[in-house]
Design a protein around this nucleic acid. Structure first.
Lengths: 181, 181
DNA sequence: CGGCGCATGTAACTTGTTACATGATTCC
DNA sequence: GGAATCATGTAACAAGTTACATGCGCCG
């Protein structure tokens, strides 16, 4: 069983979803700590269906183009719970920008400044999205028992993105002051 | 050309190294933003040597078990500089602990508390290593032009790990207060 | 009627991990 | 003499990306 399996099982635990919907949730809500491609998602859904952890939800079919909605089975829920108890295994982070920063003396300072400006822009956007999610969730905190947990995850994203932006500002100032010399 | 190529090229730009030494540097100094396995490293060294971006440094050979020290060539330096100018492409982060936190209501709170305790321990250790590096580098700041850049990378690690630890403390408190109810 | 968003899927490929094989040197 | 560390390497496998193929429905 791989990590992708559990993202899917976890999301289907909340509600039945199509592969496309799962992808969208991961791209938007999980953006700052997870990613999946269609080439990974669709084959995984097929396999989870074959082993009986999820099954097709016929009730939603009909309108438009063939659309497969999946729901989790009791076996799937059991597998998810087992995984939740197991120790956290992998934590992979690969930030190319830090690699470039590390070796940056080999290029003119304004090159790195450009990279940092883009980084800043991207993470300011992420932080904006997280702030909006926080506001939205706080309004419907009582509606579901897991909302408080999700807020903890959002808080992580806010802290980390804020740290990114603080670092970025300071590093840009450092490079600008060096450029003047 | 892949990302692994440039980590190697960048490190060899500072000094000639063996594959083993490269691995050790990545495992220790780059731990908080990069990782490589031997199965990736050795074949890449072979390939970079074949295309002429690095070459064997015979001067160090002799003692002990066959030990291949590589140094970068002018073609390698050119390739590295070109990559430094190119826009930052990938930024991959996959934090299993946030996935578990997101779905954590499906397991008893003490399970998540255990995961968090381990996370806290690991990142407190990382922060300690980073603080030691900072101290060391500040003592020899003038010795090499790139030390100031490396300090910027260390600063990133310190900020992010501090954010991790703050989040962890608050999240553990949240779970503990919930457990009491 | 063209483009966009919704929607599913696969094949070829690249990337990365794990387990294993091998063996020297150093330190206790 | 045995464990740890230094040291190199590969084969089998697992994971992940990209490009492509397909086509519906809606909006302007």
């Amino acid at each position: 069983m791989r990590q992708t399996d559990y993202v899917i099982l976890g999301l289907l635990c909340e509600a039945p979803l199509t592969g496309y919907q799962i992808k969208r949730i991961i791209d938007i809500r999980f953006k700052f700590f997870w990613n999946e491609s269609y080439g990974q998602l669709y084959p995984t859904l097929k396999r989870l269906n074959a082993v009986g952890f999820i099954e097709e939800d016929e009730t939603v079919a009909g309108q438009g183009r063939a659309q497969k909605t999946y729901r989790i089975t009791s076996y799937g829920i059991a597998a998810l719970k087992e995984w939740l108890r197991a120790p956290v295994e992998k934590e992979s982070v690969r930030l190319e920008i830090l690699l470039k920063m590390y070796f940056s003396r080999l290029a003119p300072p304004d090159v790195m400044l450009e990279h940092l400006a883009k980084f800043q822009e991207a993470h300011a956007r992420d932080l904006g999205v997280l702030n909006a999610f926080e506001k939205e969730l706080k309004g419907i905190l009582e509606q579901d028992a897991n909302h408080a947990d999700i807020l903890r995850v959002i808080d992580f994203g806010q802290r980390v993105n804020t740290a990114y932006l603080d670092w970025c500002r300071e590093t840009m100032a450092f490079l600008e002051s060096r450029e003047l010399q």
